[in-house]
């Protein structure tokens, strides 16, 4: 009997939860704020869905009732991706400067 591809995706999902569990416990508490901002940025990979939705139209109808939601989602996700990664970068740069002290 064939295995439904859904089961493979479920396996990836469950194993990723475990990876997340161990990786996040190893994050030092002083970096918990950057952790939140970077998880925020990476969860915006949902932009993948937004792009597919936005490009579902054709030459004549670029903004159809379904693609318009895609375009809106692209804006939201883009704010998050750029904002999330850059603000994380900004925070981590502050942790960097200290090394001259040592």
């Amino acid at each position: 009997m064939e295995i439904d591809p859904f089961i493979f995706r479920l396996s990836i999902f469950i194993l990723s939860i475990f990876i997340g569990y161990y990786v996040v416990w190893s994050v030092t508490p002083s970096l918990h704020t950057p952790l939140m901002s970077v998880t925020n940025a990476i969860s915006s990979v949902i932009i993948v869905g937004a792009i597919i939705a936005a490009l579902s139209g054709n030459e004549e109808v670029i903004f159809s009732s379904s693609s318009i939601y895609g375009f809106l989602a692209i804006i939201l996700a883009a704010v998050n991706i750029f904002g999330g990664f850059l603000v994380t970068q900004r925070m981590l740069a502050m942790y960097k400067k200290k090394k001259k002290d040592k």
Binding site: F13, T39, I42, V48
Partner: peptide, 22 residues
């Protein structure tokens, strides 16, 4: 899962468990 996209599934699981641990 809807989009059958591994990157999204992995990321979702990572972020989900990260937030839960915090």
């Amino acid at each position: 899962f809807t989009l059958e996209n591994t990157a999204l599934i992995i990321t979702g699981a990572l972020v989900g468990s990260s937030g839960a641990i915090l």
